[in-house]
């Protein structure tokens, strides 16, 4: 029972890895937060849907929708080491007054190592404090745009080798309640066409609560997020001063269901304050759904 609850305390922070029409492509940043407890390997599928509206000289020009699905897995390689990997598939759609464009294909896969630096438990074995640091590589294997145009951000890949990193902290507040904070920073490199998306920071903090439901666990959380994107640069084109740069911050809601073999996750991001691409892009939020099959780890 306590063990299961300690697992629940670590289950919610996992939304940073997604395609991004501001920062570009799959794997703009990695979150290692998903089920940090070392008792499980898992494999799952998750879907992240993001919506934006674009403006041209202050006039609404188009709506963009990016649907990203990931085959996502984690292996507990040792008591303090986790290997995480994902293969994404993304569809990007832009709808305008006079037509629409559609970009679909495999995105950039990534592999990621997460090291558990600190994991203190109470006398009952429940997690009290947890701290992990991770880093990995995003491989430029997905389809990306050679042209540096307005459709570039809808492609499933970026064409660049990127290095995502993350820091995750969890503190038990009281029985069934915990505080979770996570920050990720991705170092980005140029793609073969000379285009380089700016590095980006993702961060979140939230309180979570666990409720027992027929022997399983319902875990919900409420908090906030802040994402920052540095400007893109190009060696071959004259980009604007703030291309793809900006920030967005808002509210994050989680609802998750955990049984002995399955974890079902859902998450909503609602932006409240934002300044993206000189105001020419407005994020309308994101929705994430996931299902994971849990495999008990033999690592002790």
């Amino acid at each position: 029972m306590k063990i299961l609850i300690s697992t629940c305390l670590l289950v919610l922070t996992s939304f940073q890895l997604l395609s991004c029409d501001i920062c570009g492509g799959i794997g703009s940043s990695v979150s290692a937060g998903m089920l940090l407890n070392e008792r499980y390997h898992f494999i799952g599928i998750r879907s992240v849907n993001r919506m934006t509206t674009s403006y041209f000289e202050g006039i609404k020009h188009s709506r963009e929708m990016v649907f990203a699905q990931e085959l996502y897995g984690r292996i507990q390689a040792g008591k303090r080491i986790q290997l995480i990997a994902a293969i994404p598939f993304q569809t990007g759609i832009q709808k305008r007054d006079l037509g629409q464009d559609f970009f679909s294909g495999l995105g950039d896969p990534y592999a990621y190592l997460n090291g558990i630096v600190l994991h203190q438990k109470d006398s009952a074995g429940a997690t009290r404090t947890f701290l992990s640091i991770g880093g990995g590589i995003k491989f430029p294997l997905g389809k990306y745009s050679i042209k540096q145009d307005g459709f570039q951000n809808l492609y499933p890949g970026t064409g660049s080798w990127d290095v995502p990193t993350s820091l995750t902290f969890v503190q038990k507040v009281k029985n069934y309640w915990s505080f979770q904070a996570e920050a990720g920073y991705t170092f980005k490199r140029s793609n073969p066409s000379g285009f380089r998306y700016g590095n980006n920071l993702t961060s979140s903090a939230q309180f979570t609560h666990v409720v027992r439901v027929k022997g399983n666990r319902l875990i919900y959380g409420l908090g906030g997020f802040f994402d920052h994107f540095e400007k893109s640069t190009s060696t071959t084109s004259n980009l604007g001063e703030n291309t793809n740069s900006g920030y967005t911050t808002g509210v994050r809601l989680n609802l998750n269901y955990l049984s002995r073999k399955w974890l079902i996750t859902s998450q909503i991001n609602v932006p409240l304050i934002q300044q993206l691409n000189n105001g020419s892009v407005k994020s309308n939020g994101a929705i994430q759904l996931g299902i994971h099959y849990l495999i008990t780890s033999k690592v002790k």
Binding site: Y55, F56, E57, I59, K60, H61, S62, R96, D97, L98, G99, G150
Partner: peptide, 15 residues
């Protein structure tokens, strides 16, 4: 050729 039939005070096109 492309036609938009929605009513609005302003439009932005990029085709």
């Amino acid at each position: 050729t492309g036609t938009a039939s929605n009513h609005s005070d302003s439009y932005a096109f990029h085709e």
